[in-house]
Amino acid sequence: MPHESTAEHWGSEAARAHAAHLGMWLFISTEVLLFAALFTTYGVYRSVYPEVWREAQAHMDVTLGTVNTVVLVTSSVLVALAVHATREGRPGTGGALLGLAALLGVTFLVLKGVEYAGHAREGGLPGEWYRLEALPKPGASLFFSLYYLLTGLHAVHVTLGVGVLTVLAVRAAAGGFSASDHTPLELGGMYWHLVDVIWLFVYPILYLS
């Protein structure tokens, strides 16, 4: 339960939780605007270099991208189940589910690292480091620059999310949450779902379209 002074400051536990959720929604809005700008930039350059974009996408590892999508969606489901379990008074189960979700987040990052290594070996690097002999056309290096920008920024968010989930899992296992007091868990879940939704936009435009 929150300290009495904290409860008095906000007026009630409900008001404190509402303020925390509002703050998270504002944060999510800024993240949506950031990635919306990047997606728009990607779309503009795709319209300028349509043929090159299609050829560059042929060098994407669709299998790894698809596996990572399944991994991230599964982790998001586990987080939702963790919140549900905690609301029902089973914080221990919630902590275990959060731990599994964090492990899947690490799996996502490892697979992304494998994919990056493959691109590096064939020369599909950003900017002045671009050396992909199979696709020497103008605009190809720009595709890979945007690819690394989008996926790299998303990977940073995944890394932060794994840290958040790990902390929440430890707190849950230690009895830090209850059916009536689990706002941090809900906020962490909101952030992780944001990471998942962003990837569900990144995946099709880079690997499938």
Score class of each variant (00 low, 15 high):
residue 1 M to G: 12
residue 3 H to I: 08
residue 4 E to R: 13
residue 4 E to I: 14
residue 4 E to C: 02
residue 5 S to F: 14
residue 9 H to V: 10
residue 13 E to C: 08
residue 14 A to M: 10
residue 17 A to T: 10
residue 19 A to R: 03
residue 20 A to C: 02
residue 22 L to Y: 02
residue 22 L to D: 12
residue 22 L to N: 14
residue 25 W to G: 13
residue 26 L to V: 10
residue 28 I to V: 09
residue 28 I to G: 08
residue 30 T to G: 14
residue 31 E to Q: 13
residue 32 V to H: 08
residue 34 L to Y: 07
residue 36 A to V: 06
residue 37 A to R: 09
residue 39 F to G: 00
residue 40 T to S: 11
residue 44 V to S: 12
residue 45 Y to A: 10
residue 54 R to S: 15
residue 55 E to Q: 11
residue 55 E to M: 05
residue 56 A to I: 00
residue 57 Q to N: 15
residue 61 D to V: 07
residue 62 V to I: 10
residue 63 T to M: 07
residue 66 T to M: 11
residue 70 V to M: 06
residue 71 V to F: 15
residue 77 V to N: 07
residue 78 L to P: 00
residue 78 L to V: 01
residue 81 L to M: 10
residue 82 A to I: 05
residue 82 A to L: 15
residue 83 V to D: 05
residue 87 R to Q: 12
residue 92 G to M: 07
residue 93 T to F: 11
residue 93 T to H: 06
residue 93 T to Y: 04
residue 94 G to A: 07
residue 95 G to T: 02
residue 98 L to H: 08
residue 99 G to T: 01
residue 100 L to W: 04
residue 103 L to C: 07
residue 105 G to I: 03
residue 106 V to G: 08
residue 106 V to Q: 07
residue 106 V to L: 15
residue 107 T to S: 14
residue 107 T to R: 02
residue 108 F to W: 00
residue 110 V to R: 04
residue 111 L to Y: 01
residue 111 L to N: 09
residue 113 G to Y: 15
residue 113 G to D: 12
residue 113 G to S: 12
residue 115 E to I: 03
residue 119 H to D: 04
residue 119 H to V: 10
residue 121 R to A: 10
residue 121 R to T: 13
residue 122 E to Y: 14
residue 123 G to C: 12
residue 124 G to P: 02
residue 129 W to G: 03
residue 131 R to F: 06
residue 131 R to K: 15
residue 133 E to S: 07
residue 135 L to R: 05
residue 136 P to D: 02
residue 138 P to A: 08
residue 141 S to F: 06
residue 141 S to C: 11
residue 142 L to F: 04
residue 143 F to H: 11
residue 145 S to L: 11
residue 145 S to I: 12
residue 146 L to C: 11
residue 148 Y to V: 05
residue 151 T to V: 08
residue 152 G to P: 02
residue 154 H to K: 11
residue 155 A to I: 12
residue 157 H to C: 06
residue 157 H to R: 05
residue 159 T to Q: 01
residue 160 L to Q: 06
residue 164 V to H: 06
residue 164 V to K: 03
residue 165 L to P: 09
residue 166 T to Y: 12
residue 166 T to K: 05
residue 168 L to K: 12
residue 173 A to P: 00
residue 174 A to V: 09
residue 177 F to Q: 09
residue 180 S to R: 14
residue 181 D to N: 13
residue 182 H to R: 13
residue 182 H to S: 10
residue 185 L to T: 00
residue 187 L to H: 14
residue 189 G to C: 08
residue 189 G to L: 06
residue 190 M to G: 07
residue 190 M to S: 14
residue 193 H to R: 03
residue 196 D to L: 14
residue 197 V to K: 12
residue 199 W to D: 03
residue 200 L to I: 15
residue 203 Y to R: 15
residue 204 P to D: 13
residue 204 P to V: 03
residue 205 I to H: 03
residue 205 I to C: 06
residue 206 L to Y: 09
